[in-house]
């Protein structure tokens, strides 16, 4: 016991200095250089079982809830789904007709037919506890051939982009993450622009659009595809508010994402971007 009491070692202040310096070193190198990816992946793999255990109660509660669901709500949901299915089928028929027509036109113009992008279904495991970042973790990783930089979408539009790939999971940076850029095009008039995550709340900013340009609330923004990450034509956001202040060169345009960026649990990861494009 005595040797414990009088144990020699660096003083708390010395230890604090050492660990503070180490932390600062890690912070700087992680923020500016990407040397620590392997270390992060190793630790992430080690804590993966714990993450699954932590998710178990929620999954159990969900399955119990599903089991206990009332008959009436099931009937209602069934009716709704049937109606939706009909509507979708109608839309699908139109879509097929349009695709036929489009292919024909493309052939006429001797344009290259677009290669269909294979997609991978994934489930959102959890959102980040860290309130700074707009990121989610999904349950498909390197073992399912998810590549860094792939686009992530849901049924309504673009959700984000794969930022980091772990063996069994990957980290998706949402389009609402602060300063996350997404190249878009206004559906109505083909105007190209870049939309940035605003970082606060579930909103996007359309920046560098001069005040006199034709854009109005309700306009739909789709991906333009010029970055090579997102295939062209995926819906991204709808313009919510246009604030034209003559004092500034640019208009302040706020947009709302169309996809359920933080509502859904099922997402699609589009397979890796075409090889000729550079990563963000």
């Amino acid at each position: 016991m005595e040797h414990e009491l009088f144990r020699h070692g660096p003083s708390p202040a010395a230890r604090l200095t050492f660990f503070t310096l180490l932390s600062l070193l890690l912070l700087v190198s992680d923020a500016h250089y990407k040397y620590l990816g392997t270390l992060r992946q190793g630790i992430a793999t080690a804590i993966y079982p714990l993450q699954r255990i932590a998710l178990a109660p929620a999954e159990l509660a969900k399955s119990i809830g599903d089991f206990m669901q009332m008959q009436s709500s099931l009937v209602r949901e069934n009716a709704l789904l049937k109606r939706q299915n009909l509507e979708n089928q109608a839309a699908l028929l139109r879509y097929q007709a349009l695709q036929q027509e489009n292919n024909q036109l493309r052939r006429l113009f001797e344009a290259k037919a677009r290669i269909p992008v294979p997609a991978l279904m994934a489930e959102i495991l959890y959102g980040e506890r860290d309130p700074f970042s707009r990121k989610v973790i999904v349950d498909k990783g390197a073992l399912a051939h998810v590549a860094e930089g792939s686009a992530v979408i849901d049924n309504a539009g673009v959700i984000g982009q794969v930022l980091e790939v772990y063996p069994w999971a990957s980290e998706v940076s949402l389009i609402t993450d602060k300063d996350h850029p997404t190249p878009v095009q206004v559906l109505r008039n083909g105007l190209r622009a870049i939309v940035f995550g605003s970082g606060s709340g579930n909103l996007l900013d359309l920046r560098y659009i001069s005040s006199n340009i034709d854009i109005r609330p309700g306009d739909i923004l789709v991906t333009s595809g010029i970055d090579g990450t997102f295939p062209a034509g995926l819906p991204v956001a709808a313009v919510l508010k246009v604030d034209r202040n003559p004092a500034y060169a640019f208009a302040r345009i706020t947009c709302e994402p169309l996809a359920g960026v933080d509502r859904h649990s099922q997402v699609l990861i589009l397979a890796s971007p075409p090889p000729e494009s550079g990563k963000k």
Binding site: R15, F19, L22, S23, L26, L27, L36, L39, D130
Partner: peptide
């Protein structure tokens, strides 16, 4: 349990929360 253990668990939290390496580590050791 002292500053070193706090730092190690900070690093684990940094990975779990996908924050920058050292963010929680610095805060916990402090």
């Amino acid at each position: 349990i002292g500053i070193g253990a706090a730092w190690i668990f900070g690093i684990l939290m940094d990975v779990a929360d996908a924050t920058l390496f050292g963010e929680h580590a610095l805060a916990y050791s402090m």
